[in-house]
């Protein structure tokens, strides 16, 4: 069953049509990846899904509801959370305050506390550094915090925008392990990545984006073995 359906999405920057009619869907329980080169429009799609930038055309449905024009802050209580590109943690707040902001829309104190305990259990480093100013964390730790912050809202659908960007190979593996684990515990994931190989290896299905259009789609495995994809994105 489709949790997120995007139909004929178009986004323009002035006269330039950055996204030129993109349709895709994410089914409940899946990891779906959007891959493509720099400038293909991956982040533009992620921003427009949450209405951080306006859509020129198209329709977005989440969990059966039309969310085409619903502002970002109202999507979070509906169960849709996004980890933006470049992490965007609150550098001047502490680790604990960042996590608190992630649970901003939840009111049940006991449930929030439970989610926090789970996150601390999974990432003891965040507990250790809970009083530390978040800007002093390393890049990998910041990504871990950004993803944990989004999990604090207890999302059904998690949008991840370039989670491995700028990280050391060791942390890239940690982050991808984390994505698989988040998915296994019941959260549907839409993943945008430049690291196509990694993304395809964890994704159930994937779409290949090229200058604002979807040019290929298939299962992660099929695309990993697709000659054109290998040539363009996997350095084959």
């Amino acid at each position: 069953m489709a949790l997120l359906t995007v139909e004929d999405l178009e986004v323009s920057y002035g006269l330039i049509r950055a996204i030129r009619g993109v349709s895709f869907e994410v089914n409940k329980g899946e990891i779906v990846a959007l891959i493509g080169a720099n400038g293909a429009g991956k982040t533009t799609i992620m921003h427009s899904l949450c209405n951080l930038i306006p859509k020129a055309k198209g329709k977005v449905t989440y969990d059966g509801k039309d969310i085409t024009h619903i502002p970002a802050h109202k999507l979070v209580p509906m169960g849709m959370a996004q980890v933006p590109e470049g992490r965007r943690i609150f550098c001047e707040l502490t680790v604990a305050e960042n996590l608190k902001m992630g649970a901003y829309t939840r009111s049940n104190k006991a449930e929030k506390e439970k989610t926090l305990e789970e996150i601390y259990a999974r990432f003891p480093i965040l507990k250790e550094r809970s009083k530390q100013i978040a800007g002093t964390l390393s890049g990998g730790e910041q990504q871990m915090l950004a993803m944990s912050r989004a999990l604090m809202s207890h999302p059904s659908l998690l949008l991840l925008d370039e989670p491995s960007m700028g990280l050391s190979p060791l942390y890239v593996n940690t982050i991808f392990d984390m994505i698989t684990e988040i998915n296994r515990s019941g959260t549907t994931v839409l993943l945008v990545e430049q690291n196509a190989k990694k993304a395809l290896s964890v994704a159930n299905r994937a779409y290949v984006l090229e200058t604002g259009l979807i040019v290929r789609e298939g299962t992660g495995e099929a695309l990993l073995n697709d000659d054109a994809v290998i040539k363009a994105y996997l350095g084959g």
Partner: peptide, 9 residues
């Protein structure tokens, strides 16, 4: 923008 992604109005 990040604040609005946390559900902050």
């Amino acid at each position: 923008a990040a604040a609005s992604l946390m559900g902050i109005n």
